[in-house]
Design a protein around this nucleic acid. Structure first.
Length: 252
DNA sequence: GCGACAG
DNA sequence: ATCTTGTCGC
């Protein structure tokens, strides 16, 4: 792809993000979100993509639905997809949303009773350059509540891996502890969460759609058996397993 | 030229 | 995302 055509693509994507961003709902909209016990919440989804080494076009898109609060597998869908859009930081959604949306729509059409009530997404939501990351994108297009959970800090809007940030991480004492990720504007775009007692490195939680930040944080923590919340962890493991079985590494 | 760059 | 097994420690 030529430099100029990529510049044009980015311009088009920026305008699309600005437009869709207005549809994000950063508040609780569901009945189950009203109480900290999440009464009525029975199904939590997780999505992820895995790639074959050296191939950035063919990938395995994974959707899992786990029971809540037991976090047991209710449904899983692994599908090979062909990605057309390139990966450009800040525009991950244009690469991953289409196939994830298809997986959700397929489930809604075939087994609507298993459709998740909220989806945990591997990546950011409002914690994003233009406050419209993958979790917001998938949320708006699917209409489902979504939460962004990133494993690495995106340095954006003045939030950096500074010594101050490092010391805030060090101050997280136990699972559930968190601190806000505040933009230069003063707006809180997300929170760093120590997801379990036994993990030092936090995960970065932000609103995707139809959920408040505090509810997103509490839900994420409630889904953690290990550092990465179980829905995303299961999606990740199962998509890798799918590739291992169907595209075994050629032994030399 | 150097650093940053969700997945 | 992926390259990569064992190993040290709680």
């Amino acid at each position: 792809m030529s430099i100029s055509s990529q510049e044009e693509l980015v311009k088009q994507w920026e305008s699309e993000q600005a437009s869709l961003r207005q549809q994000v709902v950063d508040e609780d909209t569901e009945d189950w979100q009203r109480s900290p016990e999440f009464p009525g919440l029975e199904r939590v989804g997780g999505v992820d993509l895995s790639f074959i080494k050296g191939d950035d076009v063919n990938a395995c898109a994974q959707l899992v639905v786990l029971s809540y609060p037991d976090l047991e597998l209710l449904y899983e869908d692994s599908r090979m997809v062909t990605l057309t859009a390139p990966y450009i930081a800040g525009f991950l959604a244009f690469r991953e949303t289409p196939c994830l949306l298809e997986a959700l729509q397929h489930l809604e059409k075939t087994q609507p009773n298993l459709l998740p009530q909220v989806v945990l997404v591997d990546g950011n939501g409002l914690f994003h350059y233009r406050e419209f990351g993958l979790a917001c994108h998938l949320g708006v297009l699917s209409g489902l509540p979504c939460v962004g959970v990133a494993k690495n800090l995106l340095q954006v809007q003045g939030v950096t891996k500074s010594e101050e940030h490092q010391s805030q991480i060090a101050s997280l004492q136990r699972g559930g502890d968190s601190f806000p990720l505040t933009a230069a504007s003063g707006r809180v775009l997300g929170k760093a969460l120590r997801s379990s007692d036994s993990s030092t490195k936090p995960v970065y939680v932000s609103v995707g759609h139809k959920i408040s930040l505090d509810t997103a944080l509490h839900l994420t923590h409630s889904c953690c058996r290990y550092r990465v919340p179980e829905p995303i962890r299961q999606a990740d493991m199962r998509s890798r397993e799918y590739l291992r079985v169907h595209f075994p590494t050629t032994a030399d």
